[in-house]
Nucleic acid binder design. Structure first.
Length: 496
RNA sequence: GCGGGUGUAACUCAGUUGGUAGAGUGUCAGCUUCCCAAGCUGAAUGUCGCGGGUUCGAGUCCCGUCUCCCGCUCCA
């Protein structure tokens, strides 16, 4: 990683704090790992990103909106596979610092070693006063399986084996060098109701998608939509990541912008390609540099448990390429599982073909926080002028926190009053900023730094003909516009 | 979670062998200023990440803890 690029991220983090885009969560208490707060400018930017997505995705005849609750029935996560796939006991080798999932480690052992482990397990059982002989009476194959499961599922078994130096590190060959197994449950757990009873455990959703799947029937009923159609949702999701890193990129609380598109099986590949291309184009349409974007298809053996095909839309951050959106062909996995677990029929009757089927699902899943960060990084530029460097955020006007700043050239001859009136007038339709302090050049720079696309100045000519100057953030060129026409002028620029 | 680095004013940082904190930028007020960080005058802001310890005395030494950064690991 180039050092100057790393500095770029540091500068953006610093700017974000200084100007109020992003603050560290609970900062006065020294922060909370992996959590960030959006300040006055950040929340505008985030809203604009989400609004742009919402309009692109749901202002169309075949996609409906939804806002499902964050807490869902615990069975949802059993059906989705998250309970199973989100809890992996792991250990580190103290010698070489390698980390293993216990089941993977056990898988890597040959039969000889497994037999040793099984024998030791029999002794262990006897020591505990259980029937080790009965265990040994089982067929060898079964012994290995039972002992393996015990090793993976019970930390005390693992620890005992480890102490007996039966467990070897696949990387450095050390024995007895493992840490105590730790369970990494990536789902946040909490309790429904005031009693912390194990029956009351629920999870904070690790993805918004399941809220869509469980509402598939409700939405199609309520809206009379016919397959193919989609359901879109924006909302918070939570994952207890082992490590957070890279500013907003990997956080424990984040916001997703997801759409699940239900299609007839057999047409899924076609829809997959179509949504993939549309989603890439969305980022480009909102100002992101084409050369900083790429498609990264997942290899078949790296696919998630629910997916038949997957591609990431990646952005080239200062720390490298990172996923900002994933497009998955989730097949009928989720609906089928929910049908199975809930006992409620989720089949769709296709009137046209007179067929009953469980629809396939094409998922577009974008990170709102990651997208915001990509837009922020992409917009950031230090422009070399003759005698200085101008820091400017070249946001697409649609995304910019402030659309315009009203800046009276000087604070006299009534220019500030006219400016204030203009500001109040524009404020009815646009998020605008007013500033009459100091030199106008200084004020332009301040607005450049937060990405305000237009600077409107009131000058002596305004007093005579009711026109103001509009200065373009990127070119710094100015044009005169009549005050009456300003609203239309801004609307035009923002609708592009 | 492991290893390395880091944490001093809003930001970027300085702080000499331990003697109770400075600079630049920014911010604010005033003057000046008819278009791109101008100038002048003045002002505010820190229990030096947090908690212990050593010491007559700790930003400076020791221990713990937390944050952030880099690497490893993880990433359904």
């Amino acid at each position: 990683m180039a050092k100057n690029q790393q500095n770029t991220l540091e500068k953006i983090v610093s700017l974000s704090k200084r100007r109020g885009f992003v603050f560290q969560s609970s900062e006065i208490y020294s922060g909370l790992n992996g959590c960030w707060d959006y300040g006055p400018l950040g929340v505008e930017l985030l809203r604009n990103v989400k609004d742009a997505w919402w309009k692109a995705m749901t202002y169309r005849e075949d996609v409906e909106g939804l806002d499902a609750s964050i807490l869902m029935h615990p069975r949802v996560w059993e059906a989705s596979g998250h309970v199973e796939n989100f809890t992996d006991p792991m250990v580190d080798c103290k010698q070489c610092k390698s980390r293993y999932r216990l089941d993977v480690l056990y898988e890597s052992y040959n039969e000889k070693r497994r037999k040793k482990i099984a024998d030791a397990y029999a002794v262990l059982l006897t020591d505990k006063g259980e029937d080790g002989e009965a265990f040994k009476a089982q067929p060898r194959e079964q012994q290995l399986e039972v002992a393996g499961d015990a090793l993976v599922d019970h930390a005390e078994v693992f620890n005992a084996m480890n102490e007996k130096e039966l467990l070897v590190c696949a990387n450095c060959g050390s024995t007895g060098s493992f840490t105590v197994p730790r369970k990494f449950n990536l789902m946040f757990k909490t309790f429904v109701g005031p009693v912390e009873d194990s029956n009351a455990v629920v999870f904070l959703r690790p993805e918004t998608a399941q809220g869509i799947f469980v509402n598939f029937g409700n939405v199609s009923q309520a809206t009379r939509q016919k397959v193919p159609f989609g359901i879109a949702q924006i909302g918070k999701a939570f994952r207890n990541e082992i490590n957070t890193k890279n500013f907003l990129f990997r956080t424990r609380e984040f916001e997703q912008m997801e759409m699940q598109f239900f299609v007839k099986p057999g047409t899924d590949d076609e829809w997959y390609e179509q949504w993939r291309d549309m989603r890439l184009q969305w980022f480009i349409d909102h100002g992101m540099k084409k050369e900083k974007l790429r498609m990264h298809p997942h290899a078949d053996d790296k696919l998630a448990h629910y997916a038949k095909a997957a591609v990431d839309i990646e952005y080239e951050f200062p720390f490298g390429w990172g996923e900002i959106e994933g497009i998955h062909n989730r097949t009928d996995f989720d609906l089928r599982r929910h049908q199975e677990f809930s006992g409620k029929g989720l089949e769709y009757f296709d009137q046209e073909s007179q067929e009953k089927y469980i629809p396939y699902v094409i998922e577009t899943s974008a990170g709102a926080s990651r997208s915001l960060m990509a837009f922020l990084v992409d917009a950031y530029e230090e422009e070399e002028l003759e005698k200085e460097t101008r820091t400017v955020l070249r946001f697409h006007p649609k995304l910019a926190p402030f659309k315009a700043a009203v800046l009276p050239l000087v604070k006299r001859d009534g220019m500030d009053e006219i400016g204030m009136k203009l500001y109040r007038d524009l404020q009815k339709d646009f998020k605008v900023f007013y500033d009459d302090s100091g030199s106008v050049g200084r004020r332009y720079r301040r607005q450049d730094e937060i990405g305000t696309p237009f600077g409107i100045t009131v000058d002596s000519e305004t007093l005579e003909d009711q026109t103001v100057t509009v200065r373009d953030r990127d070119s710094m060129q100015q044009e005169r516009v009549s005050m009456d026409a300003l609203r239309g002028y801004l609307s035009d620029k923002l609708s592009v």
